[in-house]
Amino acid sequence: MLSVWIHMLRRRTTAAIWWAVSLAALGALLAVAYPTVRGNSELDKTFADLPPSVAALLGLSDGNLLTSPAGYLDSQFYANILPLTLLIFAVGAAAWTIAGDEAGGTLELLTTNPISRTRIAVARYGALLTLLTVLAVVCWAAVAALAPSTGLTAGLGIVRLAAATLACALLALVFATIAYAVGAATGSKPAATAVAAGLAVAGYVAEGLSHQVTALRAVRYANPWHWLLDADPLRNGLTWQSTVLPVAVSAILVIVGLAVFRRRDLR
């Protein structure tokens, strides 16, 4: 089990390092640039006139001012860039775990060893969790190291930054697990990527529009983006909605994906 886990980590490390470096740089830039935004009240006036759906996608709903630490961090990072970036990375890695490796032809030989398909799949999911965790921690550390010196953590503290990062990672996990489960059930990497990416984009747009379009209100409770953005962990800390819900949904998806993967033909 451990060796399958290590093998996947090795295989994905180079890519993960680049993602981590870029995200850390972005986080650091964000912290360093805050002083130029903080004193600019004109910005708040400009953004006050945005339609609610756009404001929501920017993380500026409910009077969250752009110049406040929470408004700035949400609108520039935790409500869009960070979850989207983590999501793209995680969906890519998840689509590889089974479907990508199967399409590459290297999974079949591994499965002839004395290790069950379930164990291979679980070890690979473990590696996916590890990579996502490392990325999230690096990202949090980069912001947390610089934010206090520019006043970005006023009223929040670095623990809130951790909460927001964790919630973003959990959102990425839900869509990554969709890719994982579709790949496990079908063996098709294109299907895995397309379903996960399609749902992620649709969910993001639907969550923004649901502030204006009442018809979308009913379905927002099934939308992982709503779980994250509505809970706003940066301002409110962690809630069951932004933590338990994504974890539970991911767990169910893993179980369903594995149940099919155990029985089906390899491609």
Binding site: H7, R10, R11, G105, T112, N113, P114, I115
Partner: peptide, 24 residues
């Protein structure tokens, strides 16, 4: 049945017709 019996695979060697291994 090798699909179900994991331990028996210890005693089996297999070479696929289209051999592909992690290139690294």
């Amino acid at each position: 049945d090798l699909a179900a019996d994991v331990t028996s695979r210890r005693r089996v060697g297999y070479l696929p017709g289209d051999l592909r291994v992690d290139p690294k």
